[in-house]
Nucleic acid binder design. Structure first.
Lengths: 174, 174
DNA sequence: CATAAATGACTGTCCAGTCAGACAATCAAG
DNA sequence: CTTGATTGTCTGACTGGACAGTCATTTATG
């Protein structure tokens, strides 16, 4: 998985399975004893990274008001992405790949329940309380991804951008 | 170009050049008299679609206050994407492809000046007036893309979602 | 010794890009 | 008006390389 993350981050999804095997220090053939197909590997990797991102974002959440909780999650989320740029990069690629099956996407959605709850709580009394939950979640997600990309492009001002992004988000839903 | 748009929308960037040539009604070989390489085709297509999207969004802009102008642009933008789902789909694929050169991205950025101006005007007196312009633009873009995706997934309530998205955007920057 | 795991050479498939020749358009000379 | 030389465009079979996945064999393990 680690090897796949590194190789895909560097070469994209077109990377040869042989390259991944080599990076992992196993033979080409061995890789296919662990994963039936390349698509299988990709799907498993997607779930693992998504899950890790979710845990990272939710970890150590304070029992507090919605805004504080949201800000905490936002901060952890951004931090995870900046500390793990390769994982983040690979995840972004997998996100838009059509190798990811509908089942995998559904499983990922379920694994994100914790994060969705935080968004739900934050918007419950805000201006978007009547919009569809999935739309709100999609918009929040989009803001987060964009903020992360921006931070990666200008890491020196990471904290500043993190705050700008959060405040933009909060104005939107809070 | 039209053929490439159709094929890429359907099959992704992995589509064979032969498939594009066939769809266009010319021979495999002919395609390479018009484009040196597949990458060349992809880059040109990206610029064309991006340009078309920009023109569509800016067309018939009213000389009016920032909010009205912004809403107009937003509406035309969403409409273009819903009326041309294949173009939109292909553009989304090209956007994240690493076949697109830095020069092409730069050219596309320049072609979007008109849209950036509208965003600039809208945020000039708002809460994001001190944030970097590129960050603001990235966030707005992200909201637009997410809204479009959502509308495509539930076209029956298109108008409603279009409004939700715009209001979210305006709360963020206006 | 028996079983499981790992190996890497190999195969079939796919595809970007090439090239030798077919075909069409233009035009100067007879 | 005809001819044939010239130029430019189109064609699709072909090539070389890349790559996912297989499998007979080797190596480790209990």
């Amino acid at each position: 998985m680690t090897a796949a993350t590194r190789i895909i981050a560097a070469q994209g999804l077109g990377a040869a399975t042989a390259a991944i095997a080599k990076e992992a220090g196993v033979s080409n053939g061995s890789l296919f004893t662990y994963f039936d197909t390349k698509a299988d590997l990709i799907n498993q990797l997607y779930l693992e990274l998504k899950g890790e991102m979710g845990s990272a974002a939710l970890g150590g959440a304070p029992a507090s008001d919605a805004r504080t909780q949201m800000r905490h999650m936002w901060s952890r989320w951004m931090d995870w992405a900046t500390v793990n740029p390769q994982k983040r990069r690979t995840l972004a690629q997998l996100q838009v790949s059509d190798e990811i099956t509908a089942e995998t996407h559904e499983a990922a959605r379920l694994a994100m329940t914790g994060m969705r709850d935080v968004f739900e709580r934050s918007r419950a009394d805000g201006p978007m309380r009547d919009a569809p939950a999935t739309l709100v979640f999609a918009l929040c997600n989009a803001l987060a991804e964009a903020t992360i990309d921006y931070i990666i492009g200008d890491p020196d001002r990471a904290d500043e951008h993190k705050r700008s992004g959060f405040e933009a988000l909060w104005r939107m839903i809070g």
